[in-house]
């Protein structure tokens, strides 16, 4: 514990700016993954334990596209689209067969997907460490804001994550499709009775969730090492985020992700030995006191 240092940092503009930006950087990428997880749970009522796989696939697709084309934009698109398409395939051929069955069946199908995809990635890309790289302009010196430093690439990453979050929110709350999806979450029979193809819609929502994970993977690929099995730690963190924020709540995922990002950023200054334990403690506490999460609506 070092509260003096923490207080010193909070009251110094440069330290405060740097650490807040750190919290956002850690948090927003986590939000992208967790929001996909939450979207799928909220609408389909299934927990996608294989979500980390789509994060990994997004990263590897982006890596491959960047190697071939050298275009950063194409790489991002390839990561998002590749993960989304495989997500739809996974939903149609595997997950959809275990809807309404017990939780363990869903868990096993996802476990199988993790095992298979990790091995396939190892066969195709090899076991060695990889990084995607980034355009020169992003690798420029960090921007100075009120004495604090924020790297150019992270500014881009934050903007992307915020933009995607905003589009997601508008899409769900302000469009006709969003209205149908919200209805689907509450009463799928009624939506089906209105002549809407619910199976297609389920696949689309699942794919959308995977696009979010894939985009996060692609955005992380220039700065985080690509290895088979890289989705695991991200999966665990995003579970913590969804549980804290409320399963099925996208605003909840945002709040929880930023909360965890800021906890880690300022925890590193104030109580560096305890930040990881703090995340599990927070999750346990939320589950005990408010199982539906901070902003969740489903009751346990």
């Amino acid at each position: 514990m070092n509260l003096d240092v923490l207080a010193g940092c909070v009251t110094t503009a440069s330290c405060f700016v740097t650490q807040v930006s750190t919290g956002l950087i850690v948090g927003m990428l986590l939000f992208l993954v967790a929001s996909g997880l939450s979207l799928i749970f909220g609408v389909l009522g299934v927990v996608n334990f294989a979500h980390g796989v789509f994060y990994m696939l997004g990263a590897y697709f982006a890596f491959a596209a960047y190697e071939v084309t050298g275009s950063f934009i194409l790489a991002l698109l390839a990561g998002a689209a590749g993960a989304g398409l495989l997500g739809i395939v996974f939903e149609r051929f595997f997950m959809s067969r275990v809807y309404g069955r017990d939780l363990l069946m869903q868990l096993l199908v996802c476990y199988a997907a993790i095992l298979i995809c990790d091995d396939l990635v190892k066969i195709v890309f090899g076991a060695d460490y990889k990084l995607m790289g980034m355009p020169e302009s992003f690798a420029a010196a960090p921007v100075e804001v009120m004495g604090g430093f924020i790297p150019g690439y992270y500014i881009f990453m934050l903007a992307m994550a915020l933009g995607i979050g905003a589009v997601l929110w508008l899409g769900i709350n302000r469009t006709r499709l969003g209205k149908i999806i919200r209805a689907l979450a509450i009463n799928p029979q009624m939506v089906g009775a209105l002549g809407i193809n619910t199976r297609l819609l389920y696949a689309a929502v699942f794919g959308m969730g995977c696009v979010l994970a894939g985009t996060a993977g692609a955005l992380a690929a220039p700065v985080r090492t690509l290895t088979p099995g890289m989705g695991l730690s991200v999966l665990i963190e995003s579970f913590i985020v969804t549980v804290i924020g409320g399963m099925g709540s996208i605003p909840g995922a945002l709040v929880a992700a930023v909360l965890i990002g800021l906890t880690r950023a300022f925890g590193a200054i104030g109580f560096p030995l305890f930040t990881d334990g703090l995340m599990f403690a927070l999750m346990g506490l939320v589950l005990i006191l408010r199982p539906s999460g901070l902003l969740g609506t489903r009751t346990a």
Partner: peptide
């Protein structure tokens, strides 16, 4: 996966 908070520290 991420070391940003240690780096900014």
């Amino acid at each position: 996966p991420d070391y940003t908070e240690n780096i900014t520290k």
